[in-house]
């Protein structure tokens, strides 16, 4: 089985400082990988390198494209990379405002990706938008409301609908539940877990919340100061942490 994403020895430096270095892993179709670590540990840098938002200084990111098989997205041409970004990939930002068009209605937000890949039938676009809003539990009568009339949780769900409407194969999530209160977080996680399983998505989730990865991720990568300090199955890493930093991280979780 070919991996969907094959990352080899990625490094990104900010001048003399390390963003992230010596990162490599394979992600197989249907697999969800979590990246955890404290603030400044390089997890967002890594995610941006993988999603083509940042150019890494070293290494390869090979994605299994539909037409040409494994292809390095670092050296791929920009039109190709942007095409991938709006078809096979999805990127869920921590702040929904970064991922949504705030001046455009919910339906327009969901429809944008469809129109970007050539949908030109208003009725179809709207039907699909409403279908997707339903899937993320946004009522149909909110389809013409702008995202700024939505609560934080709804905005985040809208962002997810907008990203998944073109049926991507790989989803990047940067702290998808950050900034939401716990009950909303729980619903969102439930929803995400359902969508990921149902659509057979592969995902890379960056978070500092261990509960999120416990629920969603099959595999876990722990980062510290730009280095990967531990990898393994989620339950294995969380139940039996080997590295001192992972032990600290696991023991720092507040118990209610």
């Amino acid at each position: 089985m070919t991996p969907l994403l094959k990352v080899k020895d990625i490094a990104k430096f900010y001048g003399g400082r390390i963003g992230c270095t010596d990162v490599g892993f394979d992600l197989y179709p249907g697999e969800v990988m979590g990246i955890v670590g404290e603030s400044g540990s390089g997890k967002s840098t890594l995610l941006n390198c993988l999603a083509g938002h940042l150019a890494p200084d070293r290494g390869q990111v090979l994605f299994d494209t539909r037409t040409d098989g494994l292809k390095d997205i670092v050296t791929m041409s920009e039109p190709e990379r942007r095409m991938l970004a709006r078809t096979d990939w999805a990127f869920v930002h921590q702040h929904a405002r970064d991922g949504l068009r705030m001046g455009v209605s919910a339906g327009g937000n969901v429809g944008e990706r469809l129109m970007a890949v050539g949908a030109r039938h208003y009725g179809d676009i709207r039907a699909q938008a409403i279908d997707w809003l339903g899937r993320v539990e946004i009522p149909e009568d909110r389809v013409d409301d702008r995202p700024d009339a939505f609560s934080g949780g709804m905005q985040q769900r809208l962002q997810i609908a907008r990203n998944l409407v073109t049926g991507p194969r790989l989803v990047f999530m940067d702290e998808p539940t950050g900034g939401l209160d716990v009950s909303v977080q729980a619903r969102l996680l439930d929803l995400l877990r359902g969508l990921v399983r149902e659509m057979g998505l592969s995902a890379i989730i960056v978070t500092h919340d261990l509960a999120v990865v416990r629920l969603l991720a099959d595999r876990l990568m722990v980062m510290k100061s730009g280095h990967v300090v531990e990898t393994g199955l989620t339950d294995q890493v969380l139940d039996d942490p080997q590295h001192a930093y992972t032990q600290l991280l696991v023991s720092s979780v507040l118990q209610v």
Partner: peptide
């Protein structure tokens, strides 16, 4: 629709015009 000139130039260069239809979609909606 997209206030960044750097971005719109890129969109013209790469012929990414889906956003223009978002405006028309909003009109109809």
């Amino acid at each position: 629709l997209e206030p960044r000139e750097t971005e719109t130039r890129k969109m013209h260069a790469l012929e990414e015009y889906g956003l223009m239809h978002v405006k028309l979609y909003e009109d109809i909606a």
